[in-house]
Simulated scan of single mutants.
Amino acid sequence: MTDKITLKHDGWLVVADGEKALFLRNEGDEKFPNLAVFREQQQENPANRDQGADAPGRFNDGGPGTGSAPHRSAVAETDWHRLQKDRFAAELADILYKQAHKGRFEELVLVAAPGVLGQMRKELHQEVAGRIVGEVDKDLTNHPVGEIEKLVLHSEG
């Protein structure tokens, strides 16, 4: 990341992965940011092996009436863990839309693991997308707030 992002006073910074999101508000200003967590969103998302109970399915794709010998093919197993991450990204996009619609923030910076950021982009309403002043495709959810501030926001001080 070469350029640091600036965020106005009361601008929001959302740090997310597929299971946890931190909503931070800049209580400082563009020159001297001071991020504070004001909301945390979390969902339980066990590993895929703990969510799927069945073995991958199989089906016959040949045999009598088709002119070919019977052939069995495997059906890809559902990635429940990935689906939960996608649902969580959609849930965050919905929260941001509701808050933007209420006028709670003018500027937004999104910081998320690449897959989550991509899914959020797909789900974001125009009202939210128009307020984004920066995006960072990194998972920083387990970093201290001061480090997030240092890694993401421009600071001259």
Rank of each mutant, 00 (worst) to 15 (best):
F59T: 08
G146P: 02
V37F: 01
V128H: 13
E149P: 01
V152C: 09
L124S: 06
P64W: 00
D10G: 03
K150L: 05
M120A: 07
K150F: 06
K20N: 12
R131P: 12
H9T: 13
E149S: 10
G62D: 10
E123M: 12
R72C: 00
A21S: 14
D61P: 00
V152A: 06
F88D: 07
P56Y: 02
G65L: 05
D79E: 02
A16G: 13
V14M: 12
E44F: 03
A89S: 14
I95N: 06
V14L: 15
N142K: 13
A74H: 08
A112F: 02
D29V: 03
G11F: 14
D94R: 14
R49L: 11
Q41L: 15
V15N: 08
R72V: 15
P46A: 03
T6N: 05
I5S: 04
L83F: 05
Q84H: 15
R49F: 11
G52P: 00
H143K: 13
K98N: 09
L140D: 04
G157C: 01
E91V: 04
H81G: 00
R131Q: 14
T141L: 01
V111M: 03
P33S: 01
W80K: 09
P70T: 02
D79A: 01
E135Q: 15
W12D: 05
P33L: 02
N142S: 09
G65S: 08
E91T: 14
G28C: 05
D54T: 09
E40K: 07
A21T: 15
L117C: 07
G57F: 07
I95F: 11
A74V: 09
F23R: 11
R87A: 15
A53F: 07
G11L: 14
S68L: 05
E27D: 13
D86L: 12
K122W: 00
V75C: 02
P33W: 01
V111E: 02
Y97A: 11
D79T: 01
E77T: 13
T141W: 00
E156T: 11
K4E: 06
V75G: 07
A113L: 09
T6H: 05
D54Y: 02
T66Y: 06
L110G: 10
L7T: 11
A90H: 09
N26H: 03
L83E: 15
G134L: 04
Q99E: 15
K98D: 10
V152R: 05
T2I: 09
A129L: 14
K8L: 12
T66S: 14
I95K: 11
E147A: 07
L153F: 05
K4R: 15
H81Y: 03
V75Q: 12
V136K: 12
K102S: 12
W80T: 02
K122R: 14
I148T: 03
A55E: 12
R131T: 13
E19R: 13
R87S: 11
P33K: 00
Q126C: 02
D86G: 03
S68I: 10
V75S: 07
Q119M: 07
T66L: 10
E147D: 13
V75R: 11
R49S: 11
V116Q: 01
V75N: 05
D137V: 04
A112R: 01
L35Q: 00
L83S: 08
D139T: 06
L110D: 06
V14Y: 09
D137Y: 02
N142H: 13
V14D: 08
G146C: 00
K122H: 11
T6W: 03
A16S: 15
R49K: 14
V37Y: 01
D86C: 06
M120C: 08
D50S: 08
F59G: 01
